[in-house]
Design a protein around this nucleic acid. Structure first.
Lengths: 333, 333
DNA sequence: GTGAAAGCGCTAACAC
DNA sequence: GTGTTAGCGCTTTCAC
């Protein structure tokens, strides 16, 4: 099917090594004339080098794998685009794999990447405590890995994350400054580090500003649109009074907004909605939502920097980089 | 770094083939005892089979590549999730690559997939006339390919697409039935087949219902949020009168809505906004947008069916499958 | 400047 | 049941 170096060698009555040299630009050891002939034949015959074989031989794939939990949120697709172009600039290619927020799926996607012997993995985990063994195994084999955004506390690995705690703190202070007193926290699941960080920030903000903590205002919710819709809906039905909601991401916020509007609540007159997410769709959910931006670009830069460094110098001490959230609070109300 | 079959063979004083057989479950030709010993040793030593080598040897990768132009829209991420789980069910893995709407980028992503010798490629092109040579080359090498959603007319390859023409027709009729007369068409670029199909539908709908065609109402726009925002903004400033807008996708629609709201226009009282996109975020853009669903699931099913068939029976005649759009028009107004 | 030979990690005839 | 051999497509010594 595919034309090989052997075919070209046969065609030109040369050895495979010469063809290989010519094709990989080893001009010092091949005469210009030969190079020309080989290149011409390769083009004519439709030669495509088999990277699988090259990788096998060189024990290097010049490919970095990116594993993310989802692509519904703008954050990951922006991150991927960003990281991809940075990696490309450094000669690396990218393959993308998904976990779809599922630990089993994550395991097989993770294995896919290591099966393909990628030179490094950028990953955002779907669960704090799942697949730790897989991660350690690969780390033990000295395969460069960088956790980003959704990282794992107390795990000896390079990580890059945004300062979610600070971000939610800012968001809360903004809401409090606007006179909001009964702020609902749509908390993400506790197996996601960011969720616990944010919950902590929620609590600190309250006590910092002398507001009482009401457990009825903390709602454990999933991360997506139906979750936000369901939880806020039942909160409304249960008669709990509140004047603001802090959401986990734009999709969840969207569900929240829909539930509010369906309940005849005006935004932001009656209830303010706030969330943190990538800039790409900042006010996507509702014109008057309060949002704080995730530092996508910087996270991508750091993650790529770390992985490239790790590839070149495998024995580098582990770093845990925290990128401060941009203080851009968008609030059109 | 990685443990190989050779290492296990050495450890157990067996030949590499026996180890290989044991590891690949060839129970007919290996004694149970040997299998047990090999499996135990493999686990103990942290063996991970090198798929690169397997692929090279078997000349088969059990991997399908998916190449998409973007991940901002919900359509592609839903499609990927869907296709991925179908492929998995059939023993195939998936790697994802992006073109980011850029023809050069598409070329290198496409090459990445063929470099890795994937067994088949599912792709949605970013441009009607770019990279045709690359596609043909691979097709000529009998590599199974299926174009989906954004396909190319008159290109001899399997394709699966939604009936965009019919969809926009339905959308138009819906708007006209609601009394809209001056409908703006935010037309996508003409190098995207779907855009031309929809433009044609827009025109047919008008003439079918005795409405005159006003070139001022047709706006060539990009596919994203800033595009919708910019074009509708300048339309408003130019004083053109209109009572509805048909957009290309949810992101573009979002920009359109923002521009309208910024201009003090009420939706849908003053202007109706309509678009076609995946169900995932149907009313994401605005509670009162009119939308028609893309048949994501069916498209994924057909695309996967075609690629798997093509992998098994390379010499199958080409098919061009058109999936009717779901007639679910959501319109909360 | 070119070729022969070995080998990356694995599988598949073919022997025994 | 197990080992030997050859080879997937490529690169890389080492000769010449």
């Amino acid at each position: 099917m595919y034309v090989t170096i052997k075919d070209i060698a046969k065609e030109l009555h040369l050895s495979r090594s010469t063809v290989s040299r010519a094709l990989s630009g080893d001009f010092l050891n091949v005469s210009q004339e030969t190079v020309d002939r080989v290149v011409e034949a390769a083009a004519r015959m439709g030669y495509k080098r088999n990277e699988l074989a090259v990788n096998l031989r060189k024990r290097k794939s010049m490919t970095v794998g990116i594993l993310v939990p989802e692509l519904k949120t703008s954050f990951y697709s922006s991150f991927i685009a960003e990281a991809q172009s940075l990696l490309k600039r450094n000669g690396y290619r990218t393959i993308i794999a998904l976990s779809n927020e599922d630990t089993t799926w994550e395991k097989s996607s993770f294995n896919l990447l290591s099966d393909y012997r990628v030179d490094g993995i950028l990953l955002s985990v779907c669960h704090n405590r799942a697949n730790l063994e897989e991660y350690s195994d690969l780390l033990g084999k000295q395969i460069p890995m960088v956790f980003f955004d959704r990282t794992i506390a107390d795990f000896p690995c390079n990580s890059v994350r945004s300062d979610d705690e600070k971000a939610v703190l800012s968001l809360m202070e903004h809401l409090i400054a606007k006179g909001r007193r009964r702020i609902v926290h749509l908390a993400g699941p506790d197996y996601i580090r960011n969720a616990s960080d944010r919950y902590r920030a929620y609590q600190s903000a309250l006590s910092l500003h002398g507001l009482s903590f009401d457990p009825a205002l903390v709602v454990k919710a999933g991360l997506y649109r139906p979750d936000g819709y369901r939880e806020i809906g039942s909160l409304l039905r249960s008669g709990v009074v509140f004047d603001a909601v802090v959401c986990f991401n734009e999709i969840q916020a969207l569900g929240c907004i829909e539930a509010l509007l369906a309940g005849g609540i005006r935004i932001p007159e009656d209830v303010s909605v706030a969330s943190m997410y990538g800039t790409e769709v900042s006010s996507l959910v509702h014109p008057s939502v309060t949002s704080i931006e995730k530092p996508i670009r910087k996270m991508a830069e750091e993650a790529v920097r770390l992985i490239l460094h790790q590839i070149s110098y495998p024995a580098t001490p582990v770093q845990d980089i925290i990128i401060p959230s941009e203080v851009v609070i968008r609030d059109s109300s």
